[in-house]
Design a protein around this nucleic acid. Sequence first.
DNA 1: AACGTAACGGACGCCCCCGTCCACTTGACC
DNA 2: GGTCAAGTGGACGGGGGCGTCCGTTACGTT
Lengths: 201, 201
Amino acid sequence: MAEQLPHLLRSDAQDNRDRVLDAARALFSERGLDVPMRVIAREAGVGPATLYRRFPTKQTLVDEAFIDELATCRRIVEESCADPDPWRGFASAIERLCVLNARNQGFVNAFMSANPEAEMFTEHRVSLQRQLAHLAQRAKRAGALRRDFVMDDLVLVLLAGRGLSSVLPSSREARALRFAELAIDAFRERGEGISVGQRRR
Amino acid sequence: MAEQLPHLLRSDAQDNRDRVLDAARALFSERGLDVPMRVIAREAGVGPATLYRRFPTKQTLVDEAFIDELATCRRIVEESCADPDPWRGFASAIERLCVLNARNQGFVNAFMSANPEAEMFTEHRVSLQRQLAHLAQRAKRAGALRRDFVMDDLVLVLLAGRGLSSVLPSSREARALRFAELAIDAFRERGEGISVGQRRR
DNA sequence: AACGTAACGGACGCCCCCGTCCACTTGACC
DNA sequence: GGTCAAGTGGACGGGGGCGTCCGTTACGTT
């Protein structure tokens, strides 16, 4: 996590850099991406110039700050792929991604849609999307995932999860879990009992 | 819609007021609430001062601009309550509210959470919430709505619907419909293969 | 047509945010 | 301990949004 490439930075510079990243992570997670750079700098106990020297643009800082979360994403999806039960793997991926999104306000915004020029993100995005697609296809083949499921549905749910940002931090996690539960139920293939009122040609 | 209280405003003033409201509605719907007042004024073909004279604060403008949508909300919920089929009423309310939210970017933000001091909104909110609760209870009693449903779930879905703001306007409506479909499926009581839609005891 | 007042809009001040510059400080190496 | 480049933070300029002031315009009434 802490950068330890053959210490090109002076020790105090490295300290400050780490403190800035910590502060950025905390604030981005708590309040979303539109936290002023000054606030991050003040929180980290450095001046604005120091912050800007390490991270020339706000985007750079955002990218660096969320590298860990990105790794978490990959781990979640990989563990889900490793689950022998296709449906449980699929469902647990959704649940854990929802919780992760709820915990980090800014992450989905940073990852999805937002910045098209962040090469690092797009690269990981396509990779993640491929794994998720595989996960979904496996679950569908097992007959557990609704037949009309498409990948866009997953994006829809993940994007929607962003909407519960406004709830107060205390209940945020519980909300995310409930939301995931509902989403998973929505995706579950329901038995042969065909319901009226849903098929709208 | 157009204010016609015994014309206290001069004709040109009334015209400008209407144009401002039209522009505000269009821009808020399309781009969300964080549209600069200047942009609204320019779009309406008036100066900033004129705008601020009619609507002393941005909040005032937002409130006025969304009065119609609020009425639409009420109508949707009332029509759903009037539906003899409990589940269909509940489901159609969700679907239509989702579409309405997708069509008007800023509306949910304006209505939910956002401004606690907008007395007009809060008043309507509690009233709407009561009706929705009735709708839900009726559907639950009919055995069509999942037993563990709570009102917070509905808020969750409506709030989440806000998250699909980022998709481009073209596919927005289709997304909203699909999202509503998923939400409705999530809420449907899954059970003994009973077909919902017609009252099943 | 003339007049008084409501209405208008360009210009202003204020604040917040971004990113940069520069004179001062401090860590690291001799 | 001395040296010096790397590092630091306060101050600056630019941009944009909000809300207001004031000289000018034009409605509508007589």
